[in-house]
Nucleic acid binder design. Structure first.
Length: 623
DNA sequence: GCCGTTTTCGGCCCGACTGTTTTCAGTCG
């Protein structure tokens, strides 16, 4: 059972209990456990295999009752508690909770008093006017429910960060132009730079809220206004994306922004911290127990009042950041300005949209000092992947552009080499060795069984010519989950081989994610943040990749793209020494090392290849 | 149901907005 399946089970329990009318804190406990399980960095099944039900209790939010339920699920594939619950509360009622404006109380009422158990039945009842006589309901609420069901069919769950952030930035620019506005910021999961967001949260500091609200709801892209009050309004855009705006007095903006940025769990920790200092923390201010308020215009003041250093929004997930802050052990997170190299990009030689020169100039304009041109390898036909011969032609082109651009930027010739369905790489070792840098990626057969797809990746990780594993899981946000990799095995192999794992910055990939980036960094695995640019404008994706790294507590020194050029070249040149090679290592996750005489012979051939590769880089270094 | 430098019991999730109401319940973030 995957972490996601476990998480979904407990989320469903929370919803059913809510409709049943269970005490709110029990519901919150199940919901919190579901969230933790969904984002847990290790395979929960593995944790359970090692430590049994007791071991599961290391997972935050998992105590006695939930650990026993996980144990039962993993042992039997079923959960008696949930089966019994389903006989009390129809399972399909969970769908009704997704309708905006419909909560657990209404769902229970529709079910018990009108026998409504599905979305279709709800729609039919509303259309027939059968809901208006219920307590707290009238014609208008029926219309709202129908509108809500409509909106539900338009929206497809969470929105990728890459889609929401540009919209939010436009709105911020608009709001900052309104008279009287002192500050405007994003908040919520968008400000924490989560890979997907539910909606756009915006906060404005102004003494006069009215003109701000007016400007907000009257934007041309707004499809409808969902609510408009004195200090809060919300709207829905044509594409179904929603935004809400709060306006606060400037002298309280810090507390308001901190509160609205969350996460909920982080805020709970801060409130605990406030209580321990005899303070109470709310959206509006910190309050002493004599009732006196401490107003904070900035978030820095909020954290300072709690005796804490400023905690960057990306860390505010209650993953140990408050404890680390107390000990003075917050990491100095990597910043966009630290990144000097992009080691994964495409040109018109395969499926890119610009020439090598065009891409190089765009990279240089963004301040990069190194660009690796890594077009696709031959087997990825749809992308126009390069044959070894085309690769040699491309080398001449890269050399030419390098001469034209002088030493303003260093170009590396690389390739994004396909890890084929049988686990073999798409170029032989001689070709791989001729390249300055090799990114190996999975694009096909991602739905293979866990053992097989994991073994494929391990095989690539152990090939000494491979420098970076590109977008390791192959996930596409929001619609495609990554391959079912055994990440414990993958990370262990990466740590052993010294290969770098990529944080692909494309907003639809963001792969590795924050959780695995953090684990990889902790294990000493080098990380690479690459844009996978197919167009000059794509270099701007770097922001998203850096955001993932920051959410993963990653520092600049853990990212090879931020290393000085000489160090990076030294690392590339040193890769691949003293390890078995592709043709030697059997294709299995637990491949034993070979030391037979025949393999030594092959080893000698490989060694030459490695030396060729080193020489190439050295030659280029001297340019 | 979970958690703990204040606790093994008692806190955790509070305020704005909406639509229904005649003073408030439900939803949402």
């Amino acid at each position: 059972m995957t972490n996601k399946e476990l998480a979904d089970t407990f989320a469903a329990i929370a919803s059913l209990l809510e409709i049943k009318g269970e005490v709110i804190y029990k519901i919150l406990a199940y919901r919190r456990a579901a969230e933790t399980l969904a984002e847990y960095g290790r395979d929960v099944t593995e944790v359970w295999r090692e430590g049994g039900p007791k071991g599961l209790r290391e997972i935050p939010g998992v105590g006695e009752a939930i650990s026993e339920k996980i144990d039962e699920l993993l042992r039997t594939g079923k959960l008696g508690f949930l089966e019994r619950l389903k006989t009390e509360v129809p399972y399909s009622l969970i769908d009704l909770l997704k309708v905006p404006g419909v909560g657990p109380k209404k769902v229970a009422m529709f079910w018990k008093q009108r026998d409504v158990t599905t979305l279709d039945e709800l729609k039919a009842a509303a259309l027939a006017g059968k809901l208006r006589d219920l307590p707290g309901m009238a014609e208008k609420s029926e219309a709202k429910i129908l509108e809500g069901i409509e909106s539900l069919s338009r929206r497809s769950g969470r929105t990728p960060l890459g889609q929401a952030l540009p919209v939010a930035r436009e709105m911020l620019a608009l709001l900052r132009g309104v008279k009287g506005v002192v500050a405007a910021e994003t908040a919520g999961s968008l400000r924490r730079m989560k890979s997907t967001v539910g909606d756009i949260d915006l906060l404005v500091a102004s003494a006069d809220a009215e003109p701000v609200m007016r400007a907000f709801v009257s934007q041309p892209t707004v499809a409808r206004v969902l609510g408009q009050g004195a200090v809060k309004s919300s709207v829905e855009f044509n594409n179904g994306l929603r935004a809400q705006l709060w306006v606060h007095p400037p002298e309280r903006f810090g507390t308001a922004l901190q509160y609205a940025t969350g996460s909920k769990e982080h805020n709970v920790r801060l409130r605990e911290r406030a209580l321990s200092k005899n303070l109470s923390l709310s959206e509006h201010a910190l309050t002493k127990n004599n009732g006196k308020e401490i107003l904070c215009a900035t978030e820095e003041e909020v954290y300072a009042a709690l005796g804490l250093p400023y905690i960057p929004p990306e860390l505010r997930e209650d993953r140990g950041e408050v404890q680390a802050a107390l000990k003075g052990e917050l990491p100095k997170l990597i910043e966009v300005a630290d990144v000097r190299a992009d080691l994964h990009s495409h040109s018109t030689w395969s499926d890119g949209r610009a020439s090598i020169r065009g891409m190089a100039e765009a990279a240089r304009a963004r301040g990069l000092r190194v660009l690796a041109v890594t077009d696709h390898s031959q087997s990825l036909g749809v992308t126009g992947g390069l044959t070894p011969e085309r690769l040699r032609e491309q080398r001449r082109e890269i050399d030419k552009v390098q001469r034209q651009l002088g030493d303003s930027i260093l170009l590396l010739q690389g390739a994004e080499v396909e890890i084929k369905a049988d686990g073999q790489l798409d170029y032989d070792d001689v070709v791989l060795a001729s390249l300055d840098i090799v990114v190996a990626s999975l694009h096909t057969s991602l739905r293979q069984p866990r053992d097989k797809v994991t073994a494929r990746l391990i095989h690539a990780i152990r090939n000494p010519h491979v420098d970076i594993i590109g977008h390791p899981t192959g996930q596409l946000i929001p619609e495609r989950e990554g391959a079912d990799l055994d990440m414990d095995v993958v990370l262990a192999a990466a740590a052993e081989s010294g290969v770098a794992l990529e944080i692909n910055a494309h907003p639809m990939r963001l792969d590795l994610d924050d959780v695995y980036s953090r684990r990889a960094a902790q294990m000493g695995i080098p990380l690479a943040i690459n844009t996978d640019a197919h167009h000059p404008a794509d270099f701007a994706f770097l922001d998203y990749g850096v955001a993932v790294a920051r959410r993963g507590w990653v520092t600049a020194s853990q990212v090879i793209n931020s290393w000085p050029t000489d160090r990076l070249r030294g690392w590339l040149a040193g890769r691949g020494q003293g390890r078995p090679t592709a043709t030697e290592a059997p294709m299995a996750a637990e491949a034993p090392r070979r030391t037979s005489a025949t393999s030594k012979k092959k080893s000698a051939a490989k060694k030459n290849a490695v030396i060729r590769k080193k020489t190439t880089v050295k030659q280029r270094k001297s340019r």
